[in-house]
Design a protein around this nucleic acid. Structure first.
Ligand SMILES: [Zn+2]
Ligand SMILES: [Zn+2]
Ligand SMILES: [Zn+2]
Ligand SMILES: [Zn+2]
Lengths: 169, 169
DNA sequence: ATCACAAATGTTATACTATAACAATTATTA
DNA sequence: TAATAATTGTTATAGTATAACATTTGTGAT
């Protein structure tokens, strides 16, 4: 039979259909405003807008894609415009860099104290990415490094594959 | 007292002093030749030389650094020359890409059957990197992904920090 | 050996990603 | 309001990677 039967273990947060993404955006911008205010960091118009653009989907987005959109609203936008905004957002832990794509994605759970490195599942088909919360993996990595006398300060974990939605096709 | 007392848990394979690196290079080239021969893949002069250059240290090296050296020996070397060689070596699983540095490093243990993704500890001070063998982390990642219905096909794991040598300074 | 074909390399140009450097503007605070 | 710091504007350039097509080299068949 052709009936599509989804057997999801858990909602895939990257799926477009599974939630009202406008809420993701509003929520992210609210959190950002509060965090910045607490820290005395200035979430300027440009920075806020870039964050909003990054949150426009659950797909990592590149600096020059952001620039294209920004240019329509702000004639004098240039690479430094967007890179500075990204740098700020990265420093504040509001977005993460996806190393395997030279792209950026919003952090759904910015740490109020200090920024963290995200761990990501990235769909090679639809491009959506979700951030994992797996302290176990971090602990394992740390202990494995420590066996060699190595002290980890930051890390990149990015897994590529097929999200539940895209496995159906 | 100023005596340097090292308390190493295990030899840090990235350390220059801890071993005769010429053996690493010879060994890597031998393995590569054998693997390619088994597969009917052609380890040409350029490809072999690029592999050798990548193995010239335990530091990830960028394509354009390789090109600089290559140009001294081969006047008409150009970006495609080195990128094609790198592509071949990546396909054969003889080298890995370090995403966080846009650079490449030799695989000390190329899989005879199919290439694997490496997991790396990378020293932010001396630049040396070593590949971890941690199937536990892979299993954890896979199971964590599977909780969300996500199937991993490849992954990037890169940890930055201080190697045992550089912690002494 | 010679031909036909495929693989590898040569060559030029260009796309994409990121930062340097300095000027102008805007916000903060003394 | 003047001094200072932070942000943004502007131009140029560095660094990474690939497209496209020509040429050469290797391989197997005749
Ligand atoms: Zn959403
Ligand atoms: Zn997908
Ligand atoms: Zn070595
Ligand atoms: Zn080191």
């Amino acid at each position: 039979m052709a009936t599509s039967k989804k057997t999801k273990q858990r909602d895939w947060a990257g799926s477009t259909g599974s939630h009202d993404h406008r809420l993701c955006i509003v929520d992210a911008l609210d959190k950002a405003a509060e965090l910045c205010s607490q820290r005395g960091a200035r979430l300027t118009q440009i920075r806020r807008r870039v964050l909003e653009l990054i949150w426009s989907s659950h797909r990592p987005i590149g600096a020059y894609s952001l620039l294209e959109v920004l240019k329509e609203e702000r004639a004098n936008a240039a690479p430094p415009t967007v890179y500075r905004a990204i740098d700020f957002l990265l420093e504040q832990g509001l977005v993460h860099r996806i190393q395997s794509q030279n792209a950026f994605i919003g952090c759904p759970n910015p740490d109020p104290n200090q920024p963290h490195n995200g761990m990501f599942l990235i769909c090679t088909d639809c491009g959506n990415a979700v951030e994992l919360e797996e302290s176990k993996i971090d602990r394992l990595l740390k202990s494995s490094a420590s066996n060699q006398g190595f002290v980890i300060e930051s890390r990149t974990v990015e897994a590529a594959g097929l999200c539940p939605d895209c496995q159906l096709n």
